[in-house]
């Protein structure tokens, strides 16, 4: 009587997006493919009325608002979506507390892969070390990130270039080469 359950297009896209996000953070520095280009699909997969979101870009902010999320300043946001990362952003993101590391933010941002700074990643999820070339971030971004976080406090990064994704969780140590 019951037909084979089939996910809607929306459900299938959110599922695939999260699969990429999950593996991106489980294997920092290893590039993953998103179902389509851009940050919007990450909003769809993660955000709803239980979230506080910071979003400088108008169109994305509209989308986030439609999910029911509250639009807030970066300091109060659990998720930040930014096509372009600004220099002061690492200092303004929530890092949680020792008691509640889960309160650290997730930053989803545009970046350029294959051009820019060469960085070496080590930490959980990295088999030894991995070197990636990431551009489109402010010059001293990685130094600022390191200064802003004290593990297990910190924030997660999902960097998106077109339909490609690289994850950098707070547990990853990033060295600029």
């Amino acid at each position: 009587m019951r037909l084979q359950p089939v996910p809607s297009d929306f459900e299938a896209r959110c599922n695939a997006t999260f699969d990429a996000v999950m593996w991106a953070l489980a294997r920092p520095g290893v590039m993953r493919d998103l179902p389509q280009a851009g940050l919007a699909q990450v909003v769809e997969a993660l955000i709803d009325r239980e979230c506080a979101v910071h979003c400088p870009d108008e169109a994305l902010a509209m989308l986030a608002r439609r999910t029911g999320a509250e639009l807030v300043a970066p300091e109060a946001a659990d998720h930040v979506f930014a096509e372009t990362v600004t220099p002061e952003m690492p200092d303004r993101l929530a890092c949680g507390s020792d008691l509640h590391p889960e309160d650290g933010a997730t930053l989803v941002a545009g970046a350029v892969f294959g051009a820019g700074q060469r960085v070496c990643l080590t930490g959980p999820g990295v088999d030894g070390e991995v070197i990636v070339i990431i551009g489109g971030l402010p010059g001293d971004f990685w130094q600022r990130r390191a200064r802003a976080m004290r593990y297990p406090m910190g924030f997660e990064m999902l960097l998106v270039d077109g339909a490609r994704l690289i994850g950098v969780p707070r547990s990853t140590v990033v060295e600029v080469l």
């Binding site: 996000v21 999950m22 953070l25 590391p101 889960e102 959980p124 593990y151 297990p152 969780p169 547990s171």
Partner: peptide, 8 residues
């Protein structure tokens, strides 16, 4: 899950 993976 994102947070769980980020802080093993």
């Amino acid at each position: 899950m994102i947070k769980a993976i980020a802080v093993p």
